[in-house]
């Protein structure tokens, strides 16, 4: 091609890079997930600000226990990063993923206990005004995300066992772990506004 044509085309686009593209797509997805939580959290904040006695007397949330669960979830983000690093170094991230899955499941288990505890105390979606509404909706939506995250990690773990991450393609692992970090960050916000505020 002659110089004239080259000048006209200009810098152009690099050849399509699938890895970059998959991560990019994942980020767009997470942006919309963030807006979903922004809607729910925004609702919580509005309702709470307009209501001086927001947390009804008689409701005691297990702050310390949940703090421990939070630590486990945050920790699992780091084990997940460890897994990503291993995959990038062409080592199978089987153990790292396994530990992450266990930690994620522990978090979920704690949430199940907490919900059932509250339920037995007579606190449920339809009681105690907007506090209970928001509490169960926010933690429920988040818990659902953790659950999906665990499923994704289990899938990644099985791919790892099957040796699928031995090569250069670990898109699936990358996406699962991005999702996992996202779920983690959302939890920190949820924890802060529900348990610490």
């Amino acid at each position: 091609m002659d110089a004239h044509a080259t000048a006209l085309i200009g810098p152009g686009l690099n050849p399509v890079q699938p890895n970059r593209m998959v991560r990019f797509g994942m980020f767009t997805f997470l942006a919309s997930e963030a807006m979903l939580f922004a809607g729910l959290i925004g609702g919580y904040i509005v309702l709470r600000l307009s209501n001086p006695n927001y947390i009804p007397a008689g409701v005691h949330l297990p702050v310390l226990q949940t703090l421990a669960a939070t630590a486990v979830l945050v920790g699992s983000s780091f084990t997940c990063i460890w897994g990503e690093r291993q995959a990038r170094a062409h080592k199978r991230p089987t153990w790292a993923l396994f530990i992450t899955i266990v930690m994620g499941s522990l978090f979920l288990l704690n949430q199940v206990f907490e919900w059932s505890h509250l339920y037995h105390e007579g606190i449920w979606f339809n009681t105690y005004g907007t506090f209970a509404s928001s509490f169960f909706t926010l933690t429920g939506f988040h818990g659902l995300h953790v659950f999906i995250g665990v499923l994704l990690l289990i899938a990644a773990w099985m791919l790892s066992l099957a040796g699928k991450f031995d090569g250069n393609n670990h898109n699936f692992l990358d996406c699962a772990s991005l999702y996992w970090h996202f779920v983690d960050i959302v939890w920190i916000v949820v924890f802060a506004i529900i348990y610490l505020w």
Binding site: E33, M35, G43, N126
Partner: peptide
């Protein structure tokens, strides 16, 4: 924008079926 409607529709659904008070 659409996820915010998703959040609102979920809250409405819960109000209708789970007795929340949003």
């Amino acid at each position: 924008a659409v996820p915010v409607l998703g959040a609102a529709a979920s809250m409405l659904y819960l109000d209708l079926n789970f007795g929340t008070h949003f």
